[in-house]
Nucleic acid binder design. Structure first.
Lengths: 135, 135
DNA sequence: ATAACATCCGTACCATGGTACGGAGTCAAG
DNA sequence: CTTGACTCCGTACCATGGTACGGATGTTAT
């Protein structure tokens, strides 16, 4: 069973150590028991595969546009029986995502107009503002 | 010739007055000469169609993922002869946009898997983390 | 000409998502 | 058994893109 330290976890998740710690503070990742440690103090926390999966999930959920607070809810839901709530959150996000994708596609079209207009050999200023006007 | 105050400009651009003022501070919008005003002080600034177009451009450029600093550069470029620079910026952003659109599409697929898995009638927890795992 | 409302501007504050610092403790190698 | 790298934790700081406050001044309707 592969166990690692916070640095290993961060590496596996493609983030920095400080970011892992930040997620812990925000309640997205747990803080395992410290191992070793003399008496009351010290010791190092060890992380396993579950933590890595969890961290990776956080990153991909972020790309889906969930905020860290929403991701915290999703993570709580993952273990709960509330399938309905999970379903609602997913569908809401799909709608938002579709809107965002449409928006970006429109922006892409504008940029293509811009690049075309400013790629030609003719002289003079490039009408940047105008290129966005037919949105 | 339709002239308006900052509140009208903000309304036309779909933003708040404070946001307009923020863009002015950031150098994205100008501050026209104050009209009226007794002696050295006071007077109200008036805005025209150009300002409205400029403000709308800022908003749509933001949806294309440009930062306010980049938008400031675009606005400066709009009047300049540097067609090449404009072209480069546009093409760079198209590449970034394509990547972002692909990312969002992948996230959408994950969410659809999630909604499917959690929409079924069966009981138990909904595997939210797992639904994102085949990315 | 006065009340009611807008503008102007500086400054402060906010949310989000981190990133950095520094002192104390821990651990493995030589 | 010391040196060097890493961990832990609290706290501070950062960038981005705003939002709010408040006093002085300007404008407009009655």
């Amino acid at each position: 069973m592969k166990e690692t330290t916070i640095a290993g976890l961060a590496r596996e998740g493609g983030v920095g150590v400080e970011t892992v710690r930040y997620y812990q503070r925000r309640g997205l990742l747990g803080t395992p028991q410290r191992t070793g440690g003399v008496g009351l103090a010290g010791g190092i926390r060890r992380y396993g595969e579950d933590d890595i999966r969890r961290l990776r999930f956080i990153r991909t959920a972020q790309t889906a546009g969930f905020t860290l607070d929403e991701i915290r809810e999703l993570l709580a839901l993952d273990a709960s029986e509330d399938r309905h709530r999970a379903n609602v959150l997913a569908r809401e996000r799909i709608v938002a995502l579709d809107a965002k994708i449409a928006e970006l596609s429109a922006a892409r079209a504008s940029l293509l107009r811009l690049a075309d207009a400013c790629g030609s050999t003719s002289k003079g200023p490039c009408p940047i503002i105008a290129a966005f006007e037919q949105e």
